[in-house]
Amino acid sequence: MVATPTEVPLGHDKTVSRRAWDYTRRHPTVVIGLGLLLLMVVITLLAPVIAADPLFMNPIDRLRAPQEGMIFGTDMYGRDIFSRTIYGSRISLTVGISVAVLSTVVGLAIGLIAGYNRPFDAIVMRIMDGIMAIPAILLAIALVSLAGASIQNVIIAISIPEIPRVVRLVRSVVLTIREQPYVEAAISVGTNFWKILWRHILPNTVAPLIVQATYVCASAMILEAILSFLGAGTPPEIPTWGNIIAEGRTYFQRAPWIIFFPGLFLAITVLAVNILGDGLRDNLDPRVARRM
């Protein structure tokens, strides 16, 4: 998804709309991804207005095909799939964004300290290697089944396997920057640690971290769906896309709409985040862009 940059010089006299258009032409992926994502966010925020109670069961109207009044059909308990899917976007986005933020913040903290403190580094990186050796899904299911099914626990369980990746990224940036002459100079003249961190290190980690965070967000949403599908995710009473699909899979021949709509929403959202990530990577982080 590499945009082919057409060299349009950015003049200062251009109107805002013209500039937006130029940006779109230069980075269509960022705009498309962001646009789709914003659409999802709007739908999510409007859920109470456009959707009915996603939990309300009406067994008389069970397994109805999409039709007027129930545009996505109903499930085996007569619940409205449209309402459930719309409310489901709340959970998926919450999980995706929370995991991205949580793993980035924790990973950033650990990575910064590890990059700066040798003895701590040795221990922490061994633990990180250990966590990375355990397949993420396995680790997450085990953690959820231990801690009990709740949204918080799912977020934590998905974040933990993502943290080592962030730590490694941050640590490698810190190690590279530490060796830059200007940083070495700053250290030698006794500049305060926090100042170095704030001036030199953090700015350099922002771009790769944002790119990394979008991928974490996308993979977290898929992982959440997989956990629910396997029966080890968010409590089934909560309509998440994964839960709706998991409950509907028995009916995938008789009532394919139960899994089709949440599946479609999930795929579009993850696609949007991935496209956005690709675009940002090309845009923000040319170093990484060259590699991928």
Binding site: M57, P59, I60, R62, L63, M76, Y77, G78
Partner: peptide, 10 residues
């Protein structure tokens, strides 16, 4: 009972 049976048996 009908509420239950409709929902779980159909």
């Amino acid at each position: 009972q009908a509420d239950y049976l409709r929902a779980i048996v159909g």
